[in-house]
């Protein structure tokens, strides 16, 4: 058989066995699609629905009416402002204290370096919520419950794992010899950091910053435990919609509104980090 003939015949002659070998794949893909996508698709439909009475399979009326409603609600605005400023402040503070520390861990030698570095493992060693409870009992005495800065403080701890681990391994991956070559070529240490080291770690650091931001923005448990009822973040508003809002669409619209930016940001993270590294950053 000639090559072109082979190429034409290839898929056909293999078709049946390919299909059989892929039966497992098709089954997995189908079941997984059902399991993962059904809830999401459902919410997406609700967000664009004006009337959907049980037991119709398809909504009676589609429309954007509830988008206007949600976007003009005062509590939505307030929650957005709170959540955005909370996430921004936590991310900025976290970057400020963690990035220098991660450089030090990766590149400097000082007494207790390994011990301090491994002390961050305690973040993983306890069930998180139990940890928050023990902190909350201390905060109760300090009057930090229901306080914005109390929430900031605890959020800061839970961002350590992104803001320390990811940049440390990024700094460690920069080839020392490249830096030495730049020094050799006459660059000052600061210049070396700026032109050689920083560009190489920037993707990882961006990923860490984005992850921190997204995670803080959607963090529900600390906000609920320490912040409620005074600190009203978007997730807490969502909880209220779930518990006591009769209009289904409000929750759906808010979900979609919230989910799209987080999706975009996390896809960006994914570009910088890759699936396995992202998993490691999140504790896998």
């Amino acid at each position: 058989m000639s090559m072109p003939a082979l190429r034409r015949a290839g898929p056909a002659s293999l078709g049946l066995s390919r299909l059989r070998a892929n039966g497992a794949g098709i089954t997995i893909a189908a079941l997984l699609s059902l399991f993962i996508l059904t809830p999401l698709v459902n919410v997406a439909i609700w967000a664009f629905t004006e009337i959907w009475r049980y037991p119709a399979v398809i909504p009676q009326k589609f429309g954007f009416r509830f988008w206007g409603d949600v976007l003009s609600r005062g509590d939505v605005h307030l929650a957005m402002t709170t959540s955005l400023s909370l996430a921004a402040i936590v991310t900025a503070l976290s970057a400020l204290i963690c990035l220098p520390a991660s450089y030090a861990f990766a590149r400097m030698d000082f007494p207790g370096r390994n011990l301090f570095f491994m002390s961050f493992l305690t973040v993983y060693a306890f069930p998180k919520f139990g940890l928050y409870i023990t902190i909350a009992t201390i905060f109760l005495g300090l009057g930090l419950i229901g306080n914005f800065w109390g929430v900031v403080l605890i959020q800061l701890v839970s961002t350590l794992m992104f803001m320390v681990w990811i940049p440390v391994s990024a700094f460690q991956n920069v080839d020392r010899r490249q830096e030495e070559a730049a020094r050799d070529a006459g660059a000052s240490p600061l210049r070396v950091f700026w032109s050689i080291t920083l560009p190489q770690v920037l993707p990882a650091i961006s990923a860490a910053v984005l992850l921190t931001f997204v995670n803080t923005f959607y963090e529900t448990e600390v906000a609920w435990l320490i912040g409620a009822p005074e600190v009203r973040t978007v997730p807490l508003l969502m909880v209220r919609f779930i518990n006591s809002e009769l209009v289904v669409q409000y929750g759906a619209v808010l979900s979609l509104l919230l989910w799209v930016p987080s999706f975009v940001l996390l896809m960006l993270v994914r570009r910088f980090l890759g699936a396995q590294a992202l998993g490691r950053a999140l504790g896998a």
Binding site: V43, T220, A252
Partner: peptide
């Protein structure tokens, strides 16, 4: 997908 949105969905 943040878990709060998952709960709603």
């Amino acid at each position: 997908v943040p878990s709060i949105l998952l709960a709603y969905a």
